[in-house]
Design a protein around this nucleic acid. Structure first.
Length: 572
RNA sequence: CGGGGCGUGGCGCAGUUUGGCUAGCGCGCUUGCUUCGGGAGCAAGAGGUCGGAGGUUCGAAUCCUCUCGCCCCGACCA
């Protein structure tokens, strides 16, 4: 490909709306152009990169026996009602939906569990046809609350989604592991530094899941990992070992103390001269369900934080958020800062973190403005809460296997694999005839990769002051032959000859024959980020060109044959 | 959706507070001459009606109302 023949416009200034490096550089180098918030045109060079990522994905998935298909983007409401997700997705405002001229409701596919389950259940009738794994690479549509960071979070984006169907849990485990292996190879081949972490399965549901995180400071997710044991988890999911809750001793009589204006844990520590670990703060949340909003009281040790994602999962709610003042007043009868298990509204559900199980003589609020209680004993002075792991794990705490300390880093979620189980197959009545002759629901898994996000993450991880430094496997072209002076016939001849020869040899090469000054061309090619550059310039008359590596900046003068020797793919 | 901010040639910005005359600047683009290994110089050009609608006024990029779009912080996700 000749760069003079493709639409390509690089910018000298950073686009004003780009914050993170990948967005800034991809926009400046002309790889992407914004059409609307979270909606982009991929230029010819960007599309080449996306195709390379896609092809790596295809190769590795097919190696594990997955089959590529293409499902419709436009999906009917009916199948979403079968799975029970239509109302929920609409309520969350996540789905683009429309009404056709007959009045039928449709959506632009945000994901394809419904379609794939419908598809497979009509084909696979017997356990003899299992397991099966199908996938597609296609644009997905999500009306994100906040699209941002260019390709990182778009409203339309390229995604690979795969779905496995198995006879039983053991089969699912095997399918899941196969995808795990494929994913590791995919991200390795893309040249990315990544980590697989335990994840919350969130809205999609299911029993287990793992996220693949490309490590980057600008990542939207925080992850905790342990170098010694290899434990790694999204903070949303992470657990840890912490210092035990201090022994409160034998139960003592309840005492009520006036604590005017003392509302926060820090203030209580100062007021009572007491260790925060012997206090229990009580936080009122609003849990949103499909049909109602419910206030919930959550108790946590004073020195620890509540993990709202865990809370949401335990409550099986659509969302949880801190309650407003009116709700707090209603369930506690007190202003904000004095909530406690004592005196709590009888209809308000009461949960407590595991660290409080068996704790005695706690300091808590008592649902009365200006007062706190000492020597609170759960079950004696108030209802016995249900105990759950509700704690937010933090860096510095011990890994759950106790083999080392947790370290925090940030990551970009480029892949996510889920064990769905029978959630969708049961809801959608998708069954096969098992060996015993009886219908059984498929045991499903689903596996996503953000293809466009992966490309963006690669830039996030591979750039410098001058521009993009594409990992070779996903660069739009591995090699660029740059002609410096199109008026010098010796340069033109040599450049054309080398370009032609490299192409003939099957090298992934493009030819920068654009007419621009040498300085500008160098800057531009650095920005574009091709891994290898062959400059045909002033020593063309001697048959010498400059060969350089974008990543290291190493340059050397080579004869034409030496260039060929470096770049010609090894005969296989 | 809550909070903050921004819409002026393709890109980056000034001008708006305190209305005023042909709306500026840099980059990019076109043509010519020179230049030619790290974003060249000179000269000549093309291109915007100031996001949109309505209003106030002798006069609006500038003031008012409504509206659309975009960005940042939060909840969501590949």
């Amino acid at each position: 490909m000749r760069l003079s023949m493709i639409p390509l416009a690089t910018l000298r200034d950073d686009p004003a709306d780009a914050e993170v490096p990948s967005h800034r550089l991809l926009a400046r180098a002309g790889y992407i152009q914004k059409i609307a918030a979270g909606i982009y045109v991929y230029s010819p060079l960007m599309w080449r990169t996306l195709r390379k990522v896609s092809n790596i994905v295809r190769e590795e998935l097919e190696r594990e026996g997955a089959n590529e298909i293409l499902m419709p983007i436009l999906q009917p409401k009916e199948i979403w009602e079968q799975s029970g997700r239509w109302a929920r997705y609409l309520a969350e405002g996540l789905m683009f939906h429309m009404v056709d001229k007959r009045g039928s409701e449709l959506c632009l596919g945000p994901t394809h569990e419904e379609v794939v389950t419908t598809y497979i259940k009509r084909i696979v009738k017997s356990y003899k046809q299992l397991p099966v794994n199908v996938y597609q690479i296609q644009d997905k549509f999500r009306d994100e609350i906040r699209p941002r960071f260019g390709l990182m979070r778009g409203r339309e984006f390229v995604m690979k989604d795969a779905y496995s169907f198995d006879i039983d849990e053991a089969g699912l485990d095997a399918s899941y592991l196969a995808m795990d292996r494929a994913y590791r190879r995919i991200f390795e081949r893309c040249g990315l530094a990544f980590r697989a972490v335990e994840a919350d399965s969130g809205a999609i549901g299911g029993s287990g899941s793992q996220e693949f995180m490309v490590l980057a400071e600008t990542g939207e997710d925080a992850i905790l990992y342990c170098e010694e044991s290899g434990y790694a988890a999204n903070v949303e999911k992470a657990t840890s070992i912490i210092s035990p809750t201090p022994d409160g001793g034998e139960a003592k009589p309840l005492e009520k103390h006036a604590t005017p204006g003392v509302k926060t844990v820090d203030q209580l520590v100062a007021f009572f001269k007491m260790d925060a670990a012997r206090m229990a703060k009580t936080v009122i949340y609003n849990a949103t369900y499909a049909d109602r909003v419910e206030a919930v009281a959550v108790m946590m040790r004073g020195d620890l934080e509540i993990n709202e994602v865990k809370l949401c999962g335990i409550l099986d709610a659509l969302a949880v958020g801190l309650a407003d003042e009116a709700t707090i007043l209603r369930v506690t009868g007190a202003e904000v800062g004095f909530a406690g298990p004592v005196g709590l509204d009888a209809d308000c559900r009461l949960l407590a973190d595991l660290t409080l199980e068996g704790a005695t003589n706690l300091l808590t609020g008592c649902c009365e403005s200006g007062y706190h209680c000492l020597n609170v004993n759960l079950g004696r002075d108030c209802r016995m809460p249900t105990f759950h792991d509700l704690r937010l794990a933090r860096a510095g705490e011990r890994s759950p296997d106790d083999r080392g300390a947790l370290v925090e880093t940030r990551g970009i979620e480029v892949g996510h694999i889920f064990k769905l189980g029978t959630k969708y197959s049961k809801a959608m009545d998708a069954t096969f005839i098992a060996e015993n002759g009886k219908p059984e629901p498929f045991v499903m898994g689903c596996y996503g990769i953000g293809v466009s996000r992966t490309a963006a993450a690669a830039v996030e991880q591979n750039h410098d002051e001058s521009g993009i430094v594409w990992p070779r496997p996903i660069a739009p072209f591995e090699v660029v032959v740059a002609l410096l002076d199109a008026k010098r016939q010796d340069q033109v001849d040599l450049a054309e000859a080398i370009y032609g020869e490299l192409r003939a040899a099957g090298v992934d090469v493009c030819f920068d024959d654009r007419k621009m000054s040498p300085g500008a061309k160098f800057k531009d090619l650095d920005l574009l980020g091709f891994p290898v550059r062959v400059v045909v310039g002033r020593r063309a008359d001697e048959g010498i060109v400059e060969y350089s590596i974008r990543k290291t900046g190493d340059k050397e003068d080579l004869a034409r044959e030496e260039v060929m020797a470096r770049l010609r793919p090894r005969a296989s």
